[in-house]
Structures are given as C-alpha cells and as structure tokens.
Design a protein around this nucleic acid. Structure first.
Lengths: 198, 198
DNA sequence: GTCTATACTCTGATAGAC
DNA sequence: GTCTATCAGAGTATAGAC
C-alpha cells in the first residue's frame, strides 16, 4: 500500500507499453518506429498510446531508456568488471536488432538540438558511459596495462566515438564488424597489444 | 562550344545553387537545411528550386557532394601526403559549420535504408575514405612506423568510425574536441606514440 | 526556366464521448 | 483509460500559366 492503485497501474501499463514497443521495433525493424505502428502493436489507438506520454519524442526517449535499463541489466557486469567483454556482448546483441540501432542513431542526431526532448537523455547517457570508461581505463593504468602517454579521458572519448561511428557504418553496410572497431579502440590505449588488433 | 548553350547554363545554374545552399547552411545553421529556406536563399521559389533536382533528398545529396568536392580541393593534400594533417584541417573547418555537420549526420542515418537516394553516396564516400586511409597506413607500415599487429584495414575503420562518432558527440556537446578523438584513432595504430595521446 | 497555386500525404495533437 | 473523430501543420510534388 505504498502506492495508490490507479497510479501504480498507470506506471505498470507504461512499462508494459515500453517493453512491447521495444519488442516490435526489434522484431519489425525501423519501420515500426512510429507512433501508429507502436500503437497497433501494443493494442492501443494512437490517442490511447499518447495518453501515456507527453509527445512522440518523449515516447521514443522512454523507449531508449527502457532499452538501456534492460541491456545494462542483461549485459553489464556488476561493479565494473570486464568492460570490453560487456561491450562486446551488447554489440553482438545490437547486431540482432537493426531497428533499435537505427532509432538510436536517428534520435542521437535529432538530440543535437538542445531544445529536443532527447537532448538531456543523450547528455546523461554519454556522461555515464564516459565515467565508466574512465574508471576502467584508470584501473588499467594503475595495473600498468596502459600506455602511459594515453589519458583515460581521451581513450574513453575514442571508445565512445568508435562505438557510435561503428553503428553508423554498420547501418550503411551490415557486413561491417562493429565489435572489431570498438575492440580496436579499447586496445589502442593498452599495452601488450600483440596479436589483438587485426 | 563543346556544350550546348542551354544545357551548359542549366548545369552552371545548378552548381551555383548548390554553392549558395552550402553557404546558407554554413551561415544560418541546420534550420536552413530545408527546401524552403534554400529556395529563399538562392532566390527561387520552392518549385523553381526543385526544377533542378529529382527530389528533396536528391538535392541534399548533391549539396553534400558539392561540399566534399570543395573540401577535398581545399584541405586535402595532393597524392596522399600528410593525411592526419589534412583531416585535422577539415575537422577544424567543420567545427565552424555546425549546420553542415548536422545535415551530414542526419543524412548518414537516413541513408541506412538502402532505398534512400543518399545510400549510394555514403557507400561510395566511405569506400573512398577507407581506400585513402588504407593506403596511408600501408605506407606507414612500410616505413616501419606501424605496430605490426595492427592491420591497415582495421585501423582505417577505426579512424572512420571515430570521425563519425566524434561528430555526433560534438553535435551534442560542442566542447568535445573532435580533432583530438580522430588524432587518437590515428595514433592508436602507430608506434612512437610517446607524448602524443593526451 | 520560373512562378503561382494547389493538391496530397503523412503524422502528431486534441476534443469529447463512453 | 481508451476510443473515435477531427484538426492542424509541415512539407513535398505537380499542374499549368507566363
């Protein structure tokens, strides 16, 4: 009884909608990333769906948030373990859901406008990723596994940019190996790189 | 008299339109990257402008092509000289024209769809850049300046991805140093990196 | 070659009934 | 909470006059 019934129900429904939306876009591809398609898929009218969100853009940001939540829970190690391996798993998964990658890319471009509802989401997300990366590289440096002339900050930026850029290249040509690109970015800052970059 | 008058005039007008469009978007920003804005800027009606292009999408592809043409002429060395320095100049220039970077990013996402008019443009452009990069890294390898375990192909992909990704990050946060990210990507494959990555 | 005018499509937003 | 119905707006494409 910590939540009023109707409120809790609304929240639950919202979550359920987001998960359903995620599933459709994953399954049907980028075409399904429109308000009408999602409404159909979750069994609501367009107006019924928008009842739960401030606008189309807000809906899509929430979809991406939910995706992050699920992905982090599924693929991310506890307490900053093997970050490159976690990234690899996420990327391998992404390669199965081009619709979501496309939606993410579209939104990240649109979010360039500071007034866009997704702007804060991407700013926070980027900051979060960079924090995790910097910590990881710092640990690598402390363990002597890092080229001393490479700062964790720059290495982190490079990994992040490589990931985003690899997605763009992959959307254009699915034969592109996203994981290899990100792996290369990681290794760029590390010592003992023999036989790793190919 | 190698060209018929009216045809040559049409072509010339087209080039002139593209250069004017480029100038407006560079000056006015991403907002100006719409058919109506460009029509106004070049002193034509919307229909008048579209008379020269098959569609809106084709118009924008041609704008990007023209930009490449001018940028390559201005910033690119003859015969594959100092590629990183050329990139650096281009990136410094890009940082002055956010509207064009934004347009480019938008188009590169939309071009993910193989049916999109920009698809071939981006495929060709990527292939061209990768060729140039691979040649350059190959020369570096021949000169013994490259970590032997790094293939020119992977290094090229990484540089390309880093550039694209850096642009996305920069659009989101203009304090991001695009040049530093691309520089880091270049150096990742090279030996003698002391005091270069920061 | 260029314009005016219009038609059309898509899609998001809103009002109001149930 | 959800629907139907309608509106509003953006923006492209086209027809046809000059």
């Amino acid at each position: 009884m910590t939540q009023r019934g109707s409120y809790a129900k609304g929240v639950a429904r919202r979550e359920q909608i987001l998960e359903a939306a995620l599933a459709v876009i994953a399954r049907e591809g980028y075409r399904a990333a429109s308000v009408r398609e999602i409404a159909d898929a979750v069994g609501l009218s367009q107006a019924g769906l928008l009842h739960y969100f401030d606008s189309k853009e807000h809906l899509f940001v929430e979809i991406l948030r939910k995706r992050d939540e699920l992905d982090l829970r599924t693929y991310h190690p506890e307490g900053g373990g093997d970050l490159p391996a976690a990234y690899e798993r996420m990327i391998a998964h992404n390669a199965q859901v081009p619709g979501l990658v496309h939606l993410f890319a579209r939104m990240s471009v649109e979010a360039g406008d500071p007034a866009h509802p997704a702007h804060a989401y991407f700013a926070d997300r980027t900051a979060g990723f960079l924090d995790g990366l910097r910590d990881w590289f710092q640990h690598a440096a402390d363990a002597g596994r890092m080229a001393p002339e490479v700062s964790p900050a720059t290495a982190s930026r490079l990994v992040q940019a490589a990931w985003d850029g690899a997605q763009l290249q992959w959307l254009l040509d699915p034969s592109v190996d996203m994981a290899a690109i990100v792996r290369a970015a990681f290794q760029s800052a590390l010592t003992g790189r023999e036989a790793q970059l190919r």
